[in-house]
Design a protein around this nucleic acid. Sequence first.
RNA 1: GGACUCAUAGCUCAGUUGGUUAGAGCGUCGCCCUCACAUGGCGAAGGUCGUAGGUUCAAGUCCUACUGAGUCCACCA
Length: 890
Amino acid sequence: MTELSARFNFNEVDEKWSKYWVDQNLFHAHVNPQKKPYTIVIPPPNVTGILHMGHAFNNTLQDIMMRYQRMRGFEALWMPGTDHAGIATQNVIERQIAKEGKTRYDIGREEMLSRLWDWKKIYGDTIINQLKKLGASCDWGRTRFTMDEGYCRAVSGAFISLYKKGLIYQGEYIINWCPRCQTALSDEEAEHRELQGNLYYLRYPFQDDPNGFIVVATTRPETMLGDSAVAVNPKDKRYQKYIGKILVVPLVNRAIRIIADEFVDSQFGTGAVKVTPAHDPNDFAMAKRHQLEFVNIMNPNAILNGHAGPFEGMDRFEAREAIVEELRQLKLLEKIEPHAHAVGHCYRCHTVVEPYLSKQWFVKMKPLAKPAIEAVRKGRIKFHPSRWTKVYFHWMENINDWCISRQIWWGHRIPVWYCGGDDHCTLACKEPIVSETTPTRCPHCGSANLRQDEDVLDTWFSSWLWPFATLGWPLSTHPTEDRSDSGKQDLDYFYPTSSLFTAPEIIFFWVARMMMAGFEFMGDIPFTDVYIHGTVRDMKGRKMSKSLGNVIDPLEIIREYGADALRFSLILNSGQDLFVSKEKFEVGRNFANKIWNASRLILMHVDRSEVDLTTIDLKKLDLPTRWIISRLHTTLNRVDRALGRCRFSEAENLIYEFFWGDFCDWYLELIKDRWSEKAIEDIVLGILKDTLKMIHPFMPFVTEELWATLHQGKNPLCREAWPVFSRKMINRSAEKDMEILKGVVTCIRNIRVQWNVNQNERVACCLITSFEKEAALLSANLTLLMNMARLANVTISKKSTHLKDAATALAGDIQCLIPLGGVIDVGKERERMVNQLGDQQKTFQGLAQRLRNKAFLQKAPKEIVSKEKERMAVLKAKIKELKSVISGLG
RNA sequence: GGACUCAUAGCUCAGUUGGUUAGAGCGUCGCCCUCACAUGGCGAAGGUCGUAGGUUCAAGUCCUACUGAGUCCACCA
């Protein structure tokens, strides 16, 4: 006998096991030639991160997969770690020093970096500890950080390798510039949002005719200060005569030419466009074509500079209003139209980004994309759901070069030095010096006056190496906890990894780039399956965000409902995007409690833990027992299939229905007073054990606790073997028969409600059916049925079970008939039967008609045809019987 | 401007490669504190599967158009 409380005490249990698993190092994976590896690398959360619902969901999915594969006998490695998250983390510290009234420039690079590292040391493990609370079965001893010493070597190694191949170059181009973070961003880091802005129509006077003018339309009038030309389409008849003429940019009085360029859309605005080469990517391209002047009117903080004339010192938006007002005064503002357009925002601080001309480092992406596109096309890497391949292809086939330099301090310093120059400098000294280690002298002139590039690399330039850099690439620089494992062996054994779990918005940032890096640096795919999951939203469908105040804190849910409840409920709702409210976590809590109590019941009566169901003689078992065994294996089979297809919610549903609906509601109720039977004890114990295993990946805590109670000190459940599906255990006819009996019982239970029977009052009834087979089934299980019926205080007093006997039964002291499908009131029976007869005759006619249809007979599968024929024969007999019963009742 | 997703019970969603009577949870309404569990048990009500066509012996499922909701991509100033 085991004493367990009637409530599942999740707080205590969660804490106990998350600590135990980690302390015992139960999730450590090592090179093991006896087993096949199964590897997942965690999408490294930012060091700034605290666990939110998105993390909870993403990591629960991974953990289910990891625990499942581990139990199935794979050497399962879940590689954990965190990302330094350059801009995001730097912003956190910047906010901190802002409270001291300072900026990062005030305290300087050294001080800033030291504060960043301090912060990382103190808070960097926060999210790792929160993941442990969730139950994540990572190999924690391997935890990596993207700025670990070895990882840094991987990053600079990757840079140098690409540079040597000519795939990294430096150049002056228009990039997305965040004036708040004061750094360049990649195209992906500029989030485009539709904003309601204005289209301003400005008049540019001719130089030789100040009364004449050309009207240009722009959404950013302040950029006019940097205009170098006005462009029109060469085919545009309206403007052909003006091409080559000179205009004067108002306010700054710069003379600019009217040029012709195919790019200009005559349909848009006035068909004449102002060209601002330093502040617009298209204008930049146009300027290259026409050798125009580049006029940069802004400082890096988006304050206008000396080129802005009277507007110098103004913020860009301030200047916009001032300029519009000024032009209005000068009668050079034709009109303002409302105009919705997509404006880029910094993905970290949400400031409007500025297309800005600056010197940056880029990676040539087209050559890298090629093998990665092929891999998906050939099916070596699969997306789940597959529709994401289309999104992937579209991006990869239209890929642009990647701006990888950032003007921030937190990150991997670009491994490039410049010769500071002295008298001995040669032309070659202008070439950047790219080196793994800090060079002491310029290789060309020998000068020691060297200066490292100030910039750091894009965070994603380090995370795209994650699947192999965490395993020791480029060298065996990462000895693992096991001294015997060299990094190289790890890499050989665990790479390529198996699957990757992430959200759709990460496909471009990370997934696609990992594929490219995988081919470039490892010569192989980084993973075989990419599982793209939904976004966690509130009940109104909005993303959860602090500013909206609609966040549900997963840690709060863990406290109030338990980690199992959090995990189970999230997955259950995860068909696509998840819509979450606090109440939705009750399902998980209730289920955990149900598992707890059902197990408690069993543990009260069963005093051992070992059982071997494979040797049990199935034929000797009664129907409900054959049924529950069959149901277990049917469920097991379906769960395996569902997990194989990444249908996690489906798997949970199956388990939920089996455990609660079949095992608890029916089987345990049925065998409640039969604990003394050895076979029953065996079966119940066996089913409990297999079920705990099956539930474990989804709800590791409650199952582990119960397993421990059952086994007292043996193997922990997380290292047990997954139950083996056996087709022999499936018994279709038992499942079918049991459905019928359950239907009968449901009918019997109805009686109490429908006839309003008091507790002590008995109802005498008679089961009827028009099917011989069912009649036999009912007869054979009459004792069982009477047992079940007694639960509802209904007595079955006549064992007559065939419809043809119903008339006799009704003539006796029977109060009601219970046909399969409903309860019959004797008085209303005749009328009902007449109606039923009509319905069945109709169905019969329909079937007959269909069976006479040649097309149906030719094209329909034979099974269907024979089934229909069988059904017709049955109907025919039933109609005949009904007729005789009706006449009997008359 | 392209691409994608969704629309099934009051709510949130399942529904396999088309195939007997479309399911679950929550909510609602009855009845039960029965010796594992009231975070429980039993029962009931509730659906013209977004609209209109088409393919098929057979459509919630496949095709087309439309309507509505959402997401992503794109250099229309």
